[in-house]
Design a protein around this nucleic acid. Sequence first.
DNA 1: GCCGTCATGTTGCGCCGGCAACGGAAATTT
DNA 2: AAATTTCCGTTGCCGGCGCAACATGACGGC
Lengths: 237, 237
Amino acid sequence: MDLRPYYDTLRATSLLQNMRDDELDNMMQCFRPRVRRYQKGEFLLLAGYENHEVGIVLEGSITAFKNTPDGASVAITHMGPAGLFGDVLSGSSLRSPVSVMAETDCLAAYLPYQKIIHPCSHLHESHYQLLQNLVTTISNKYFALDRRVELLICKSLRARICIWLLDEAERAGSNTFSVSLTRAGLAEYLNCDRSALSRELGRMQQEGLLETYRGSFKILDTDRLRAQYQEGKVSHS
Amino acid sequence: MDLRPYYDTLRATSLLQNMRDDELDNMMQCFRPRVRRYQKGEFLLLAGYENHEVGIVLEGSITAFKNTPDGASVAITHMGPAGLFGDVLSGSSLRSPVSVMAETDCLAAYLPYQKIIHPCSHLHESHYQLLQNLVTTISNKYFALDRRVELLICKSLRARICIWLLDEAERAGSNTFSVSLTRAGLAEYLNCDRSALSRELGRMQQEGLLETYRGSFKILDTDRLRAQYQEGKVSHS
DNA sequence: GCCGTCATGTTGCGCCGGCAACGGAAATTT
DNA sequence: AAATTTCCGTTGCCGGCGCAACATGACGGC
């Protein structure tokens, strides 16, 4: 299948960013990516299986989640076009801890990992870039997870909220920002009960630390937030 | 410096495993690794700085830790000869979240990341292997961290202990195993209070789930352990 | 309009687990 | 072997937060 119509999408991925058309031509010729269309609800990747392809979302959106052993499932990420999945996994020989499902009807392309890691004899300069991008992508996912751990080990809910607020404000580059997360979603990320989150946010508003309505937040006192984060850290004796 | 005396150590790393002598010769010639000796207490890597080398411990041992903003520090890992550090970091443009310090007098070699990712023109087959190893190494670190998150999001201490026990038993390939962790260390990993850990382990012994003395553990009822892990998962509503 | 659904706030109860303090065993030092 | 330090278990206290239950308002479909 000809992927030219999707070159802009490909270039939007962290793996293939800034690649020229002719470079992409070469790569696609070399990789011969598998392309498949999925209906909403179909699985693109099943937990428990090995995987040796890097998936790229071309159209529609997908969701990744873990199956908890009792049958329930916990959402991990949602991704739209230019989203990458299976990237970390394909470099490992482990079985996938996550499943990936089509959130809407969607289209995905798969690059064989072996071809990425073991480029064909007539190497192009761009292939080095691809390798570097792969490593960078995985590394960045590692650090994102690391940040999550940093958050999770905080013993007080207040501290976790503070971290999240400060992080989010930094990302937005402003003390006022809004997110698409629902309260329940935020509670899940912060690993706490939804009502407890509401309660704590309420308290923090009373104390004049911030204002919030639905998905929008406004930090009023950054310094005090930072201070409160220190207190509620780990300590455990 | 001639690294031949350390080839066996190099081969013990996940990065350079199974490389033949002549392959290592070629690589060392290509990489010209920096080698440095450190005294106990010296820093091999400082938090807050970028890093673009992969460090390999040749002699002695090192420890990696995070500086918490209030000056304290939390240990992350200890590594002896053939340990790798800075590997995930070097692929990213981020500043290091961890510092690495010499735990004893030690010797370390550094491979320049750019040379690893961007092999010289006369490519050797072994270099592809190296690249693959690099990706695999980073991926594995990712999944180790992922496992940690899995553990941390369990709301009950009991569930966290169960996961840890089951994981450790699987790793040991036996229901009886011992670890070098101290109780305090285990408590830190499980993100709980040391006394709370003792209390819970005591209860679990009373219930006939396991026996433990110091660093040695013996699982008596794997099934019940697994069942208890299910109950104390996330749920949050 | 009316009704069902979903997102959010609120509140009382109860318990898990953090914390501090102590005592004893084990390991290490002198 | 005495002394010192580290490690581990135990226990009482009580506060944070999970949990369930309910109320409210926003949204959308009929």
